[in-house]
Design a protein around this nucleic acid. Sequence first.
DNA 1: CCACGATCCTGCTAGC
DNA 2: TGCTAGCAGGATCGTG
Length: 276
Amino acid sequence: MPELPEVETTVRFLRPGLEGRTIVGVRAIDYAPLVEPLTPQRFAAEITRRPITRVGRRGKYILLVLDGGDVLSVHLRMSGRLFLAPPDMPKDRHTRAIIDLDSDRALRFQNPRKFGRMRLLTPAEYADLDDRLGPEPLGPGFTAAGLAQQLHDRARARLKPLLLDQRFVAGIGNIYADEILFRAQLNPLRQGGELSPDEARKLYHAIVDVLREAIAAEGTTLSDSGFRFGWNQRGQFAERLRAYGRAGQACPRCGTEIERQKIAGRSTHFCPQCQN
DNA sequence: CCACGATCCTGCTAGC
DNA sequence: TGCTAGCAGGATCGTG
């Protein structure tokens, strides 16, 4: 569930409750890989008593910048939720960590599938992470000319796996990749190098516009177990999806049936008529 | 360089 | 209605 718009929505709701607060303890870490390579005890000891100076996002990573410059990064992967709750709220079976603060809220991490990860990074380690990620699609460094160059550099790769590649552009996942290609009227099997300058520009604007609109709608919640932010609120973008999850339904642009096909190992939804 | 499949996990649901 | 196989928003690694 969590792609850039969902992570950004999460960050916006966490920020007021986290910035300026100090971590006073860590509870409920029930499986080691969550905080590897540290042990849960070591992880807790390392972050306890440290003030949070800033809350940010890079791609799909949530970043808590600690006093001194170390970064606590949180990746929600497929099923993670991160929210502020009363410290004494009973933990359910998906609660994987509770970070206590010097306030009346605690930061709670829920993660049914245990794919999510938290890591304490030194500034140098964060710089490495930053280097491994492509441009922020909503940042000043992402331009139409830059994207055209990147498409040239990755000329033989298909568009769908390209958009999913976090080194290409940071933050796009399966839902928004399909929505972006629908918006740009590009077939997911097209190769980066074969796009005309006009098509590359369309792709650029589709990336920016779809992500902005999804953030404005506070993300996509597809099911009861899907993405939530704040106090269990749902995102509103699901009702505005035009390709993802709509296999067999009429294309909202031309009426042709939306097709579903496995590409890059991921279910891919597109209009065979107007994405050609 | 690129595609593909396996892997890490658990919950949900489509189909029988 | 009840069961179960297969699929799911992510990322990484090994193979060909």
